[in-house]
Each structure stands twice: as structure tokens, then as C-alpha cells.
């Protein structure tokens, strides 16, 4: 059993939990055709492998990690876009695996995704109005009320001149404008839970701040529970109170963002924090404490997955998977803190 159930928060009832992931794993078979199997070439990629956490109502959590650590897969799992291989995801107390039919429609209304690439997330053949109307159609909003809601949503994301852009096609708009549309589309049904998958990574730096501010304001105004997926610690710090650091399909550290940034516990979090350039001439540039790249996800190291890059690795790291250890407000998955 790889999954480790997150420790229940003592004395608190679970009613303010919006999302609860319990030992969630998603494995992908690669090279699963007959010949590859016969040649022994087929392998299992453990994109997400035993992740547990809970999100409380109104919380904004950053999911941080480098490319290929499974953070996007985790976002897709939370939204029931892919089924988990094992473990369970509870949305407002209900296992998402059992949601279907009318309940699935209700779930789609309340859980939304903001896409990474706004140029891809809108159908090029539909006008902005048609794209924005689609969630409303699906939710059964009467035709007469749609335009009002569309305009309201565009106002919410501070889209400039909403009246003019409605009949445009995506290719006639800039990335920043499109990302606002994508956000408007996600927010138009007033969801309670939003996953933002690197929403500014495809945008010019000059428009990033605007989008991030909108995201932050909207989240506060609507009281959204949000997950912000990113590889950029600075962005996560800007929009999230809590940060979950992932490495190769596992959580390594989970705690308030400021604490993680100022005093990272896990060696990997330390490396991430060090990797952020500091724009100050006096600040000495510390060398990264780790070397090499992330190992092949098809064949991760035994025990702690970070051990082959970790400067503090010792024998126990190779044989035993680290359990969650509570350190103040934080949970860290590392043998160093197991006294």
C-alpha cells in the first residue's frame, strides 16, 4: 500500500472540507501494445502515486513542482477528467468516482478548470459569445438570461470592452484577453472549486500581473476554494496561502506558503527556494544543493523518491518510504524529521 492517509485534523469536523484526496494514484501504461509487452518494453508511469491532502472551504493552495511531477495530472484527477488508478477523491464529502448523471452535471457546475494555454482552450470555430454560452446551455440557463450572465462574467474578469469582443473569434484576440475569457468561462456558473493549471505560463510577462490580480480578487470575492498549479514559486507565493510541493508523483511538503518559502523543511523544497533568482546584488548566489534532473518516472528510486538527488540521503531513505510528519503547521515527508 503506497497511499498514506492524511492525518485527520483532530477535533475539527470535516464539513468545511471541499476536497479530500486520499492516497490518490494515477498510473499510465506506456508501450502497452502486444509487441512491446512481449519484448518487456511496456512500463508503468506513476504520474501520481499516493497523494493525500485536504482543501478547506475558501482556501487557496499552490501545487508546486517541476515538469513531470504529476501536478497537472493531480488537477485533472480532482476534476474527474481522468479516473484515479487507486485512492479516492472526495468532493464535498462525496467520492467523485460515484458521481454520474444529474450529479455529474451539478459537479461540473461547481468544479472548474482554468486552462494553461488560452490559445488552445477555446474552440477556434466558435465566437467568444458561443464559447461563453456553452456552460450556460449545459446548466440549463434560459436563453434570455445568458447574455446578462456573460456580460457579468466578463466584467468580473475585467475584460476590456466586453460588448465588442462577443462576436469575435479566438484568433482575433491576444493571449491576455483570451485568458480572461477562459477565466470568465470557468467562473460563469459560479463554481465553488477552481483548479488553475499554470494560467499565466503561456502569457507575456507584461500581462501576467493583470491576470494574477484578477484571479486573486475573484477568488476572494467569490470565496472560491482554489488550487493553483505552477512550477513558479514566486507566482504561488503571490496568490496562495498554502503550498503543496510535489516531487515525482508524491507530496514532499505541505504547509503555509510563507513558512515554506522562508524556512523550507524538505531538501527538495529547499532546492526550489534556492533556485529562485533574487534580484539583489548583495545577495550571494548560493549553489543549488542538488544535482541532475528528475529520474525516469517509469523507474523511480525505491524508498524516498528524492534520495538519489538528496544531499542528506542515508540508508533508511532507500528502504522505507517517508511517512507524513507533522512539523508545526506543516506536513513534511522526509526521514530527516522522524526523530
Amino acid at each position: 500500500m503506497v497511499g498514506v492517509t492524511a492525518p485527520a485534523i483532530d477535533g475539527q469536523d470535516h464539513r468545511d472540507e471541499v476536497v479530500r484526496a486520499e492516497g490518490v494514484a494515477k498510473h499510465y501504461q506506456v508501450g502497452s501494445n502486444l509487441i512491446a509487452t512481449l519484448r518487456g518494453r511496456s512500463a508503468l508511469v506513476k504520474a501520481v502515486d499516493g497523494v493525500s491532502f485536504t482543501l478547506k472551504r475558501g482556501e487557496s493552495v499552490g501545487l508546486l513542482g517541476e515538469s513531470g511531477c504529476g501536478k497537472t495530472t493531480m488537477g485533472r484527477l480532482l476534476l474527474k477528467l481522468v479516473p484515479p488508478t487507486s485512492g479516492s477523491i472526495l468532493f464535498e464529502g462525496r467520492d467523485t468516482a460515484t458521481i454520474d448523471g444529474a450529479d455529474l452535471r451539478a459537479f461540473r457546475r461547481s468544479a472548474q478548470l482554468i486552462f494553461q494555454n488560452p490559445f488552445e482552450a477555446l474552440n477556434p470555430r466558435l465566437t467568444i459569445r458561443q464559447s461563453l454560452a456553452e456552460p450556460l446551455e449545459n446548466a440549463g440557463v434560459p436563453r434570455a438570461e445568458r447574455l446578462g450572465l456573460i456580460e457579468e462574467a466578463l466584467e468580473l474578469v475585467r475584460s476590456p470592452s466586453p460588448a465588442e469582443i462577443l462576436e469575435r473569434y479566438p484568433h482575433q484576440m491576444s493571449g491576455g484577453q483570451l485568458q480572461r475569457i477562459v477565466m470568465a468561462r470557468a467562473l460563469i456558473l459560479q463554481p465553488t472549486f477552481v483548479v488553475a493549471d499554470e494560467p499565466v505560463s503561456m502569457l507575456d510577462v507584461s500581462v501576467r500581473a493583470g491576470i494574477l490580480n484578477v484571479f486573486r480578487d475573484v477568488r476572494e470575492r467569490l470565496g472560491l476554494t482554489a488550487i493553483y498549479i505552477s512550477h513558479d514559486l514566486a507566482l504561488v507565493r503571490y496568490v496562495c496561502e498554502r503550498t503543496i510541493v510535489m516531487y515525482l508523483g508524491r507530496v514532499v511538503e505541505d504547509g503555509p506558503t510563507e513558512e515554506v518559502v522562508h524556512e523550507p523543511l524538505h531538501p527538495y523544497s529547499k532546492a526550489l527556494v534556492t533556485a529562485v533568482p533574487v534580484p539583489h546584488p548583495d545577495q550571494s548566489h548560493e549553489a543549488l544543493p542538488i544535482h541532475g534532473g528528475a529520474p525516469d518516472a517509469r523507474n523511480p528510486p525505491s524508498g524516498c523518491r528524492f534520495r538519489d538527488r538528496c544531499p542528506h540521503a542515508f540508508e533508511r531513505c532507500a528502504v522505507e518510504e517517508p511517512k507524513p510528519i507533522q512539523q508545526g503547521n506543516r506536513t513534511v515527508y522526509c526521514h530527516l524529521f522522524d526523530s
Binding site: 478548470l113 494553461q116 488552445e120 474552440n123 449545459n138 446548466a139
Partner: peptide
């Protein structure tokens, strides 16, 4: 596998749609 197909699914569109 296009993102807008997934976007349609997230927005609650049925397979048929």
C-alpha cells in the same frame, strides 16, 4: 486531445454535444 474538447467537458457538455 485538444484542450478545447476537455474545456467543453469541464463546462458540462455531454459526449454527444
Amino acid at each position: 486531445t485538444r484542450a478545447y474538447v476537455e474545456a467543453a467537458r469541464v463546462s458540462g457538455s455531454s459526449n454527444l454535444k
